[in-house]
Structures are given as structure tokens and as C-alpha cells.
Simulated scan of single mutants.
Amino acid sequence: MTNGIDQVTLLLGAALALRHGRDTEPYWAQARSMREYAPRLRRFIEAANAGKFQEAEMELGSMPMEARALAYAAGVVAAGDAAPSRWRKTARLVLFAPERPYLRS
């Protein structure tokens, strides 16, 4: 699982796999390009999937806005309709359309 996987695909794919109870390890094995952010993003997505939104937010800390917006998009995928509406709004406003999935209002 290496061809066609960029940071956006990796995070959103891991979030979708987690949401559906699938193994996320193949995605995180490819996260080397994210260096120090990968463990924090993984914990963020896992907390979002568990409905622990405040805990998830704490994982992001002082992460740059673009990375935070991408994390929010992945958090929405992982948590579904339960995700905070602010996450959807931030992802839609900060990321270009090709950088994010369709996020219902």
C-alpha cells in the first residue's frame, strides 16, 4: 500500500478504516512523511472515533492550521455525524476541495 498514498489519502483512509473497524496499521506504516505529527494525528483520530472530542483537540496542540484542518477532516470521517460542527467548518474553509472529502453541513 504505497502507490497513490499522500498525506491526505493516508489520514482520511485511516479514519475511514477505523470508523468501519478495519486495521489501520497499513496506513500508519506509510506515515513516515508526517514525522512527529503522525503519532499525534493517530491519537486524534482514535479519540474522535471514540467520541472523546476534547481529548482529541488536546492532541493537536500548536499544530499548524493546515495540518489541524486536515486532522479535523479526518476526525469528521472517523466520528461521523457526532463530530463537532466546528471541525467540518474549519476543514471546509481552510482546505482546498481536492484536499478534503465531501463534508456534509
Rank of each mutant, 00 (worst) to 15 (best):
M1C: 05
M1P: 07
T2D: 13
T2V: 12
T2P: 00
T2Y: 11
V8R: 12
V8Y: 06
T9H: 03
T9Q: 03
L12I: 15
A14H: 01
A17C: 06
A17P: 07
L18D: 11
L18S: 08
R19S: 13
H20P: 01
H20R: 15
G21L: 09
T24L: 10
P26T: 03
Y27K: 01
A31N: 05
A31V: 01
R32A: 14
S33H: 12
S33G: 12
M34D: 05
R35Y: 02
E36M: 04
E36K: 13
P39M: 08
P39Q: 07
R40T: 06
L41V: 08
R43W: 03
N49M: 03
N49Q: 14
A50H: 02
K52H: 15
Q54I: 14
Q54A: 14
A56Y: 00
E57A: 10
M58R: 15
M58D: 14
M58C: 03
E59K: 07
E59P: 00
E59M: 13
G61P: 02
G61S: 13
S62N: 09
S62R: 13
M63K: 08
P64C: 02
E66I: 14
A69C: 10
A71T: 00
V76N: 03
V77G: 08
A79K: 04
G80W: 06
G80K: 09
A82D: 13
A83P: 09
A83D: 04
P84G: 11
S85D: 03
W87D: 09
R88V: 06
R92K: 15
L95Q: 01
L95D: 05
L95W: 02
L95V: 01
F96D: 15
F96R: 15
Y102G: 02
L103T: 11
R104Q: 11
